[in-house]
């Protein structure tokens, strides 16, 4: 079978679908002082999963607020800087109105994913961390 680290180079999704690949990518991102980008990407996926579950309305609102405060509120943050102003405004309005929309972080996650695919992911595949591992 194809070794996992070869699959990781096929696409960002292949990398993020493997615990070892995530661990290595996270180490690399932390070296580059942008580990929050990956955590935010997973937080958006986790939020969608929680949203799909029945009940927990209070927890969903609390989580939406926590994600917003941690990653988006501070415009100088590594995540917030890579999300379009209109996308941030939409999320801010949802949080302010306590109107927790299941898809409220989808656009932001798409923009962060595009930024990873364009920048950090290709650089990771050329990084010492990845090359030493392979």
């Amino acid at each position: 079978p194809t070794p996992p680290y070869v699959k990781w180079a096929e696409s960002l999704h292949s990398l993020l679908d493997d615990q070892e690949g995530i661990h290595l990518f996270r180490m690399f991102l932390r070296q580059e002082a942008c580990g929050d980008v990956l955590d935010f990407w997973f937080a958006c996926s986790g939020f969608r999963k929680l949203e799909a579950a029945e009940g927990n309305e209070e927890k969903k609102v609390k989580l939406a607020k926590a994600i917003y405060k941690k990653y988006i509120l501070d415009n100088s943050g590594i995540v917030s800087r890579q999300i379009k102003p209109a996308t941030k405004s939409f999320i801010r309005d949802c949080v302010a109105k306590l109107h927790v929309d299941p898809a409220m972080f989808d656009q932001a996650q798409t923009e962060i994913q595009a930024a990873m695919e364009e920048n950090t992911y290709p650089v990771f595949l050329k990084s010492d961390i990845y090359l030493e591992y392979t």
Partner: peptide, 20 residues
């Protein structure tokens, strides 16, 4: 703040792939 960070960590972990 702790509870918010805990909630975030739980959310991030829930989205991670299971060990193959």
């Amino acid at each position: 703040i702790d509870s918010e960070d805990d909630l975030l960590q739980e959310c991030i972990s829930s989205a991670m792939p299971k060990k193959k």
